[in-house]
Design a protein around this nucleic acid. Structure first.
Length: 305
DNA sequence: CTCGATCCCTGGACGC
DNA sequence: TGCGTCCAGGGATCGA
């Protein structure tokens, strides 16, 4: 599941592998995850890939008209935005190599390779954007977690009344953090996912800030987490999943205190946390609006909840 | 503003 | 071996 470290890994790989290449032609498969497939088919051929950047969880393929330097100011800025969703992969492959199943876009490059977008679930997104439309789209997103200052982070979180987990996942607040790194960061900072952002102390937020940056940086060094089928641009899985402390570890021991890791739904997402290290806010765990009739029935197996 | 619910989609895990 | 069912989850959207 590509989040910031995975997308950063892919961006770096692609930068090394395809920057400077020219797109000769494009062929598309299923297009229901693309904003504007006809525009993609029309605009990409003949364009040069100036560079590949990460923007939040997006890959940004900067496009130019000339193979060398952007010269005329008349050429407006343009880019292909690619979101990998859950299962997306962007792989430069030899044309002779048989395409993987679920290959939905193939861009023929001027060195004889094809840049292929593969995405089984099509939870990703692809869009060709230019000029003001591109700027507007990028402005929708919040702070870059690796570039933000601690003051920016604190004021952003303190301004919101939502739960901290929801805020970390909200791309308009912070761009790039997803479910895995949110949970890992909250555990490291000893903050409960259901805690309200506005209720967190400055000290807690400083800890959380450091946790987010430390974990993301380490995950980037380890080329991200490969949970299901994430592969980077070189087709290599990441290593960070071996360092997960809470994510996917329901029922296992907290490596810090030995308590059993729990899973609850916060902000509509599975949230893994240590009930001992991460103290729940007042009122958490109070049943919302169910009658007591089902407490016996739901108490079936041991670790599950 | 914030919430939960719903939908999108397919593969993998699991039960029988 | 092969069903059926559930679940994963980022993000858009809608109603409360």
């Amino acid at each position: 599941m590509p989040e910031l470290p995975e997308v950063e890994t892919v961006a770096r790989g692609l930068q090394a592998l395809i920057a400077g290449r020219k797109i000769l032609s494009v062929s598309l498969g299923k297009t229901d995850f693309m904003d504007n497939p006809a525009t993609i088919e029309k605009e990409l051929p003949g364009r040069c890939i100036l560079g590949v950047e990460r923007y939040g969880k997006f890959l940004l393929l900067r496009l130019g008209t000339a193979p060398e330097i952007e010269s005329t100011q008349s050429a407006e800025e343009s880019a292909l935005l690619v979101h990998l969703g859950m299962t997306g992969m962007l792989l430069p492959q030899a044309v002779a190599e048989p395409p993987k199943k679920h290959t939905h876009a193939a861009m023929l490059l001027d060195d004889g390779r094809e840049l292929r977008y593969v995405d089984a679930r099509r939870f990703g997104r692809m869009a060709y954007l230019a000029g003001e439309v591109l700027q507007k789209e990028l402005q929708r997103f919040g702070l870059d977690p690796l570039a933000m200052s601690v003051e920016e982070f604190v004021s952003e979180i303190h301004a919101r009344r939502a739960r901290i987990k929801a805020l970390l996942l909200d791309q308009s607040v912070i761009r790039g953090v997803g479910n895995i790194y949110a949970d890992e960061s909250l555990w490291k900072a000893k903050v409960h996912p259901a805690q309200l952002g506005v209720r967190l102390t400055t000290d807690e937020l400083h800890k959380l800030y450091r946790a987010i940056q430390g974990i993301l940086r380490k995950a980037i060094v380890l080329r991200g987490s490969s949970i299901s089928d994430f592969l980077d641009a070189d087709g290599i899985p990441g290593e960070y999943q071996r360092h997960h402390r809470v994510y996917g570890r329901e029922g296992k021991r907290c490596v810090r205190c030995g308590a059993a890791i729990r899973r609850v739904i916060v902000a509509g997402r599975s949230s893994y946390y240590c009930p001992n290290c991460q103290k729940a806010p007042r009122g958490f765990g109070v049943k919302r609006k169910k009658s007591k009739a089902r407490s016996a029935a739901s108490n079936t197996n041991s670790g599950k909840r």
